[in-house]
Design a binder for these strands. Structure first.
Lengths: 216, 216
DNA sequence: ACCAAGTTTGACCATCCAGTCAAGAAGCAA
DNA sequence: TTGCTTCTTGACTGGATGGTCAAACTTGGT
């Protein structure tokens, strides 16, 4: 094999590697942001590359210069998201005060729903379709983390430090309640009027709810 | 204009009117059932007429003989659903025992999530996309019903018969928690293993939760 | 200024998909 | 059987959309 180093032969900054140039960094970021906007509002099938490109201020072929395909954009978006998705639960500390830890977890999830509603809807869209692209992530990483934290919560219950409740359902309830404010925001706005923030009063309500439920 | 009575000029059994023939009734029912299956799994954009027709055991042009368009199928499906959707909340009785009424409402919604998960996902899909086709329904009928029942719950709180909680958030929480078991069933299955029913233990958990929260 | 690499795009192709149409195949009443 | 209506479908159209390509245009190092 002759000397000259192999030409890239793959899309610029394609795999995990950091983008090479400043232009790359800027455009890949723009594309992912635009894609988040479009995918979260229309779902995978409902989104078009043209829409994403326009939203990102690029032409369609230009977008396809940075990502191989619509699927590739979507995948990149998801894998960027998944790490952050676990973080709030990871922070639940087995050594902390049980009620404080659980309430803090709820608050972190609620904050994420407020700050990253598009990410939440993207995730919800995936799961509604049966989560084919998330199967690996959910049944390995997420499942392991949930099981681990569920054991912590179960122990707290056995030790009498909080009420004994099914820890999996407790975690699911936090997901359901907090994500509802992002995923169903459209409905909440229509019912309470667009002048309210959908989350107004949510934190107080949920704090009350979990305080009551976990009290011994 | 000559005598002969105007020919139908519209699709058979199109508007609210009952289907004329037995064939009509059978095929329209098949189509709507197939459409529910397909729309709830793939969303509106992700579904194709061909898919629905095949699922219903018809050819595409035959399906279009019964419904003007993909939109028409979807609309028919939604309007059939919306009535039933309000029913559980309608039954919440201002004259009943507060805790019993609220717990019963939660159980009715949970039962619907178990019995009609496809309907729940269809609804969720719509709202995720911003609910453009449900705007009228939500901001009029649903909103009016919710506001009315919220007043009932607020009164119960003022009368000291249950804890004082924000009644809108209470209703939203019941929606979030019960629908989660239908809409996110795929995720729950992956985390708890496919051998469990996603709803196993849910009723006990939710009963506990609301009993604790509403106790004075 | 010059060149090679990186970036951008207009034009294009292939496929998918909603919806049409005309002709044929049941159903059905007499 | 006859004749009319209802139902069914193969073949088609037009537009949307994912993706390609070669030719241009920038950029940055020398």
């Amino acid at each position: 094999m002759p000397t000259p180093s192999m030409p890239p032969a793959e899309k610029p900054g394609a795999s995990g590697a950091a983008p090479r140039s400043r232009i790359q960094e800027r455009n890949r970021a723009r594309i992912l942001d635009a894609a988040l906007e479009v995918f979260s509002n229309h779902g995978f099938r409902g989104a078009t590359i043209d829409q994403i490109a326009t939203e990102a201020g690029l032409s369609k072929p230009n977008l396809l210069y940075y990502f191989d395909s619509k699927d590739a954009v979507h995948s990149a978006l998801l894998s960027r998201l998944l790490d952050d998705w676990l973080e709030p639960l990871r922070q639940l500390d087995a050594a902390g005060d049980p009620e404080t830890e659980i309430l803090s977890y709820m608050r972190r999830k609620l904050a994420m729903s407020r700050t990253y509603p598009r990410e939440s809807r993207l995730f919800a869209n995936e799961i509604l379709q049966g989560a084919p692209r998330l199967e690996r992530f959910i049944s390995t990483e997420l499942r392991a983390l949930v099981d681990q934290k569920a054991q912590v919560i179960a122990r707290w219950g056995r030790e009498g430090r909080i009420a004994e409740v099914d820890p999996h359902h407790l975690i699911f309830s936090i997901w359901a309640l907090t994500q509802h404010y992002a995923d169903f925001a459209a409905q909440i706005r229509m019912i309470r009027g667009a002048e309210h923030d959908p989350q107004d009063g949510a934190e107080a309500f949920l704090s009350h709810l979990y305080t009551r439920m976990l009290a011994r």
